[in-house]
Each structure stands twice: as structure tokens, then as C-alpha cells.
Simulated assay, not measured.
Amino acid sequence: MPRKTTGAIDMSDGVSDLAGQARRLGLAGDFAAGHALIDQAERLAGDDPTARALCAIERGRLYNSAGEREKARPLFEEAWQLARQAGAHALAVDAAHMMAIVGTLGDAVQWTEAALAYIDDHPQAAFWRAALLNNLGWSYFDAGRFADALAIRTGGRTAPLGWPETRAAYRALRRDPNVARTGSPGRSPAAC
């Protein structure tokens, strides 16, 4: 059984180690090997809700990275429920963050708001705030809603930007007059 420390799995724990290895394999495109490691982690996790949440979120990430969002979504929902049950607040917010990524723009807005509300009640997960807002901004950007994307970074809820690349990208976006006219940075209206 995994060791618990106040609702979180100790990073030296076998479940965490296997889940981390599975994530790295998924990022490298070796999804079958990643799933095999999550199978092992699930056996170690037993009934521990934090360990089970970690397994669910990492298996979901494997499916998402493989382009299988419909298989990923229920795993992220399961991780959201289990992590909240266990009081693993950062893991719960991570699960909500992944739900925002695999869904529609409407889902991204809904899950980001749910995660931000959860953070308001559980400030130990506040380090997620900037990533949530960054991802929501990019969801708006990808949907062609550039004013909404920019508003996430400049108004409404604010968060420490933390990532120089993100700040630079949004500064460039704000300065690029083609975005407002064409929907794409750097494209002239004649190219559309």
C-alpha cells in the first residue's frame, strides 16, 4: 500500500514513481509501455483514493497524448472525485485542469472556474492558478476569441504570470494589428 502524507502520496512511493515514469513514456509516445506501468501502479494503489486518483489522471494523460480524448475524459473526472475525497487538493485541481484541456471551449471555461473556486477554498493548491489561466487564455486563442484571450492575461482574475514566454507572447499579440483584422498573428489581411 502507498504511504500517505496528509492526502498526498510521498514522491518516493512506488505509485508515484510508476506514474511519473508512465507520464515520461507518454510524452515520448510510448503509450503501451506507459499503460503497462499504470497497470502496475493501480495494483499498488489498492483502495487508497489519492493513489487511485494519481493513476487515473496519468492514464488519462496517456490517452490524451495519444489523441484519445474520449477515453481520457472519464479518467480525469474520476481523478477529480477521488482527489477531492482524499483531500489531495493539488491533484484535484490538476484533474480539473485536464478536464478543461480535453473538452470544448465551454468545458475549458467551466472547469477552469471550478478549479479556481476550489483553489479559493483550498489555497495550498494556489500554485495552479497561473497555469489554469494560461491554459484558458490559449483555449480562447485557439477558438479565435483573441480579445477574450488577451483579457485573461490583462484583466479579470489576475495571477502571477511566472512564464516569460507567455508574457512575451501576449505582449506580441497585443502589439500585432493583424490579429484584430485577420484572426492570426503575423498574417496580413491580403493573405486571408
Rank of each mutant, 00 (worst) to 15 (best):
V109Y: 00
D47H: 11
G46S: 00
G155E: 10
G20S: 13
G103F: 07
A51I: 00
A95K: 04
L105Y: 03
Q124P: 02
G60E: 05
V179D: 01
D30A: 04
A169P: 14
A86I: 02
G60N: 01
W163E: 14
D176P: 14
Q124I: 03
F141W: 09
Q81V: 15
A45T: 10
G137N: 04
A96S: 03
L136E: 10
T112G: 10
L75C: 13
I38Q: 01
A33V: 06
Y63L: 11
A92H: 01
L105W: 04
F31P: 03
G103C: 02
A28V: 04
A147C: 01
A143F: 10
G103W: 06
D142R: 15
L105P: 13
A92V: 01
A66C: 04
V93Y: 00
P49N: 09
L173P: 01
S184E: 12
M99L: 14
D94W: 00
R174A: 13
A190S: 06
V93G: 05
T182N: 04
N135H: 08
L62T: 00
F141G: 03
L91C: 03
L161I: 13
C192K: 08
M1L: 13
A115I: 05
R181D: 12
T182F: 07
A147Q: 07
D47W: 06
A130R: 12
E113I: 06
A45M: 09
A108T: 10
M1R: 14
R157S: 01
W80A: 13
G67K: 07
R129K: 10
M1T: 13
G34S: 13
A28C: 05
